[in-house]
């Protein structure tokens, strides 16, 4: 490989020391890639970015103190030119979505080959996105999945549902929200129909199952 004029400046963020040391070996064998910094958590990464100004960051997502999603958001806000590639073992739909929403340009799994890693870094540097097949699959599933039950509940209905989950009766809910019992009855029947539940108990079960109340 020939000596590159302007190597891509790469920073590694991972709480596992052995992962960083492996990646260091990998960066060492490509002339067009240059290691400029290492951080062991999200917070350290934000600070170090200001100092070393990398072109591309390889960012682990699950880390102590500040996780990779929050760190990505903070780095992108402060340095819009820095490209960030999420590099993780996890492919949950929510994690993929939140990493991309936070501003990551790529999402790779910790099973990528070094050629894939090198290509993704170069592409990121020129603004091109790389997603692992698993991450793409997760995004497609997210886009095609039907809306979760209860997505159409009004804020008031959510409030009533939360009190239902606590086991309150219509009378108690009316007192708590200072509304009439017939209004509560209306809300409850709307909730049941929106959740497709036959009874209060079933509505409570749906709410708990789908995390509709906090």
């Amino acid at each position: 490989m020939s000596e590159a004029a302007n190597p891509v400046r790469v920073m590694l963020v991972d709480d596992h020391e052995m992962v960083r040391s492996g990646l260091k070996v990998f960066l060492g064998v490509y002339d067009d890639l240059e290691l400029v910094g290492e951080a062991s958590d999200g917070e350290e990464a934000v600070l170090l970015c200001g100092e070393v100004r990398p072109d591309v960051v390889l960012m682990d997502l699950v880390m102590p103190r500040m996780d990779g999603v929050a760190s990505t958001r903070a780095i992108r806000a402060a340095h819009p030119n820095i490209r960030i590639i999420a590099l993780t073992s996890f492919t949950d739909r929510k994690l993929v979505q939140s990493a991309l929403e936070a501003g990551a340009i790529g999402y790779l799994l910790k099973n990528a080959s070094i050629d894939e890693l090198a290509r993704a870094i170069r592409d990121a540097h020129v603004g091109r996105s790389t997603l692992s097949p698993e991450a793409t699959q997760a995004l497609i599933e997210a886009a095609t999945a039907p809306p979760p039950p209860g997505h159409d509940l009004t804020p008031r209905e959510r409030e009533v549902l939360a009190l239902l989950v606590k086991g309150l009766s219509n009378r108690e809910i009316a007192e708590r929200l200072t509304i009439s019992r017939s209004t509560v009855k209306n809300h409850v029947s709307n909730i049941l129909s929106k959740l497709g539940a036959a009874s209060r108990t079933e509505a409570v079960a749906r709410a708990v199952e789908h995390d509709l109340v906090t």
Binding site: G22, V25, F26, V29, I114
Partner: peptide
């Protein structure tokens, strides 16, 4: 992961 990256490099 680290081992495989090193082995490849």
């Amino acid at each position: 992961f680290s081992a495989s990256v090193i082995a490849e490099a």
